[in-house]
Simulated scan of single mutants.
Amino acid sequence: MARKSWIQREKKRQKLEQKYHLIRRSSKKEIKKVQSVSDNQEIHGKLQSPPRNSAPTRLRRRCLSTGKARANYRDFGLSGHTLREMVYACLLPGATRSSW
């Protein structure tokens, strides 16, 4: 189980990313349109003005049940350990247990 502070920090980053998403997207579109260097630098300054934690690259995918940050499957949103437990308990439709 992940520490609660890490999970709360990640939730805060998600809120910030949603808040500044439109600002980042519009400034990136402006950068593509502008041809002069001085205007380009000005727009880059705008792009750097939002908080650092609002960048989408700083987000980390976490398990929905445990909050674990590693070994996550995108399709299910679960960590490998939790996914295996749920498959063995027949809680995930369409997933089969491995046997060899």
Rank of each mutant, 00 (worst) to 15 (best):
I43L: 10
V34P: 00
K11T: 12
S98G: 13
R13F: 11
P51L: 00
G45A: 09
R62Y: 11
R9H: 11
G77W: 05
Q48A: 14
R84C: 07
Y20N: 04
M86V: 02
N72I: 15
H44D: 03
S98I: 10
R60L: 10
E42P: 00
Y88R: 07
G94N: 06
E85Y: 14
R13H: 14
R3G: 07
R9Q: 11
K12T: 12
K32N: 12
C63F: 06
G80Q: 14
A95C: 06
S38D: 02
T96N: 05
Q41L: 09
Q8F: 11
T66Y: 02
L91P: 02
N72P: 02
R58Y: 01
R74F: 13
H44R: 09
R70C: 07
K19D: 03
P50Q: 05
K68D: 00
S65K: 07
G80R: 09
Q18N: 14
P51Q: 04
Q14I: 14
S65V: 12
K32V: 13
S5N: 10
S99D: 03
K19C: 00
L59F: 05
K46I: 12
A89H: 03
Y20M: 03
S36I: 01
D75R: 15
A2P: 12
Q41N: 09
R24S: 07
T57C: 01
K32E: 07
R70A: 09
S54C: 04
A55E: 01
I31D: 00
L91G: 00
P50K: 08
K32G: 08
K12F: 12
V34C: 06
C63I: 04
N40A: 06
W6F: 14
T66N: 02
S99M: 04
Q18G: 15
R62V: 14
K28T: 06
R24L: 14
S79A: 12
V87R: 10
A95S: 06
R97Q: 05
R25D: 08
I23S: 02
Y73G: 00
L59R: 07
L64W: 05
R52W: 07
S26N: 10
Y73A: 01
W100L: 06
P50F: 05
H81I: 12
A2H: 08
R84G: 08
D39Y: 04
K11P: 01
T66P: 01
R52M: 03
L22Q: 14
E10T: 14
S27P: 02
S38T: 03
A2K: 12
N40D: 05
S54Q: 02
K19I: 08
K46Q: 10
T57Y: 04
R70S: 11
F76Q: 00
L92H: 04
I23E: 09
Q35I: 09
A95G: 00
M1W: 03
L16V: 10
E85T: 15
K33P: 03
L83V: 06
S65W: 05
Q14E: 11
Y88D: 05
P56I: 02
L16Y: 15
S54W: 06
N72Y: 08
S99H: 05
K68F: 09
G94P: 03
S65Q: 07
Q14S: 09
